[in-house]
Design a protein around this nucleic acid. Structure first.
Lengths: 152, 152
DNA sequence: TTTTCCATGTAACTCGTTACATGATTTC
DNA sequence: GAAATCATGTAACGAGTTACATGGAAAA
């Protein structure tokens, strides 16, 4: 694929699972090219802007296989910036705290709704999306529980 | 508090909720001092190394109040590097995939066990810890479900 | 004809991390 | 006497983001 195509593919349906920007995509492709993981091939079709088609080198294939196994077998700890707020939740009036959390709940629900509306993806990609959806659903549950326990 | 004391407090029981290092803690304190959020007060007790006691300025108090409300009301999207692996899970033999995921499961279970062993914290801090624990428990459930569905 | 799409980048910057440095004091 | 604890930093680096730049073609 060429860069634009790759980015487009990711953007289209995987936007809920990543915050990759176009600039970063090109930046990463350049990195991989510099590292010898991929090679660029110029290509032009008609009057369209020239593209760079990327192809995996044996070195890149090797790196891919290793990285894949590493990511699959590792648990990466997750830290939530929102938890910092929770730690000091008891320093503001309870009513105000509840209103703020309601706002958070709305944003969370919107994110969940959006991901549930994304079309089905082929193969393993569906696992990633489903994981994200499942995570958001759990977050919503948890937040509702917190709000309920604060409302008493 | 002084820097070492602050870091120690966070490290002691909140290590499951953050990856703050000592260097970063001092770095952030310096930032806040530069921004006028806190002021340093030298202090020395006996032969012990000199300390810097930090005190919030009105400017810092204001920033704190605003940041707290922002963090409480916002939903920050979370992206999981592990999901990248899932997306390509179907490109390796199923048996090997299962073994890798089992390894991930073990690490996840260990993290959960560790956090469940941490002592209870005062006030809102408990919310943060409980959220992290709840998140890990859900991750474990989800992973077990994935493993089961792949085993069929 | 104006907007969006196709297609690519780069320079400057930010935020934080890593590795390293210091030195006294208390505990083993 | 060695190791851990107390207490503080800094210099160099790195990974990625932001803002900006370009320019033709197709769609509205």
């Amino acid at each position: 694929m060429h860069g634009y195509q790759l980015f487009d593919f990711i953007e289209r349906g995987l936007s809920s699972c990543t915050n990759l920007t176009k600039s970063t995509a090109y930046y990463l492709l350049k990195q991989m090219a510099d590292d010898g993981w991929i090679i660029e091939e110029q290509s032009q079709e008609g009057n369209r802007p020239p593209r760079k088609i990327y192809r995996l080198t044996p070195l890149g294939e090797n790196a891919y296989q290793h990285l894949l196994r590493e990511t699959l077998s590792a648990h990466t700890p997750q830290y939530f910036s929102g938890d910092t707020g929770l730690a000091f939740l008891d320093t503001i009036p309870r009513q105000e705290g509840l209103e703020l959390l309601q706002k958070r709940r709305a944003a969370l629900a919107a994110a969940l709704a959006e991901i549930e509306a994304t079309p089905t993806h082929p193969g393993g990609f569906q696992w990633a999306i489903q994981h994200q959806a499942s995570f958001l659903a759990h977050e919503l549950d948890w937040l509702d529980q917190l709000i309920r326990s604060l409302s008493e």
